[in-house]
């Protein structure tokens, strides 16, 4: 195997971990509440701008921007739940798309009005630099994002499977009425789920900002990949999103290298449709 091919594979896996990172919040809400958040990409975008503002105002790197973005986004998530999502859920499934798509436009163009259309970027040396190990070049910012992706996935998974908060949240998602009889308040649990999911999205955005460009429309670029990642992994399956993210990153890298950059997404979509054909519940979703 040539050194370049190894580089392609390593790069693809790191990219995949980042896809998994910014999809984890989406899968949580999707699985918990059967709600599809069309504003997800724009949540990531807001977190990226927060990272930029933290850098410009406080001179802070990710150690400052990640917690600030996580807390801010968690707040936005909880507000979005109480002000919009809770009411929209009374309507048909399509109302969620309507409401969250409106929210996406609102966030995107409010940011546009506040920050302008210009592209921004954080300095490259904010997170280490680039290291060469056995001829493979690793960008510290991407490695950090990859490691955090694993930690966030593990954290969310443990939260859902090993804590009482997690079991309460799952109880609500299984049967809200029964959960209520057991003394669990469904809307609190769902608000907490939105807070956690948006907080994880905040972490993702602040980290992605360290190596990606920042613009008001960047969420659009990222959102479709997040949808495909989550559906491929299986709605609600946090480990599924990780596996799917890694798979998509790897396939994108390899197909771009072997077949060409314009075909990489074609390969991903064909694979996605193919998987759904045989496993309509995604790779790791419950049937």
């Amino acid at each position: 195997m040539s050194a370049t091919l190894v580089q392609v594979i390593v790069g693809g896996l790191l990219l995949g971990a980042i896809y998994a990172l910014f999809s984890s919040g989406l899968t949580l809400i999707w699985g918990m509440m059967n709600v599809v958040n069309f504003a997800h990409g724009d949540f990531v975008m807001v977190a990226m701008y927060i990272a930029y503002v933290v850098y410009v105002l406080l001179g802070g790197g990710p150690l400052a921007s990640v917690p600030i973005a996580a807390v801010s986004l968690a707040t936005i998530g909880i507000l979005a739940y109480f002000l919009l999502v809770r009411h929209v859920m009374r309507g048909p499934m399509i109302a969620q798309i309507l409401g969250t798509f409106g929210l996406a436009l609102l966030l995107r163009y409010s940011m546009f009005g506040a920050a302008g259309a210009n592209f921004l970027s954080l300095p490259d040396n904010l997170v280490g630099g680039t290291y060469e190990i056995f001829g493979i070049r690793l960008q510290a910012s991407r490695v950090v994002a990859g490691i955090v992706a694993l930690l966030v996935t593990a954290g969310l998974h443990l939260l859902l499977t090993r804590t009482s908060l997690g079991s309460k949240m799952l109880a609500v998602s299984e049967d809200a009425t029964a959960a209520q009889l057991m003394g669990i308040r469904p809307d609190y649990m769902q608000a907490i789920a939105w807070g956690i999911a948006a907080g994880a999205t905040g972490i993702a955005g602040a980290l992605i900002a360290t190596f990606f460009y920042i613009s008001p429309t960047v969420g659009e670029t990222l959102a479709i990949i997040a949808f495909v990642t989550v559906a491929l992994g299986g709605f609600g399956s946090v480990p599924g999103a990780l596996v799917a993210g890694l798979l998509i990153g790897l396939i994108e890298s390899l197909s771009a290298y072997w077949i060409g950059g314009v075909w990489k997404d074609v390969v991903v979509y064909i694979l996605f449709i193919f998987v759904l054909w045989f496993r309509p519940q995604g790779l790791m979703g419950k049937s």
């Binding site: 919009l84 309507g91 048909p92 309507l98 409401g99 996406a104 436009l105 995107r108 163009y109």
Partner: peptide, 19 residues
């Protein structure tokens, strides 16, 4: 981008009050 702020806001309000 005011057009889309307005557009988004109206969609959100309708979804909120008339799902």
């Amino acid at each position: 981008g005011l057009t889309f702020v307005l557009y988004g806001a109206i969609i959100v309000l309708i979804a909120r009050f008339r799902p």
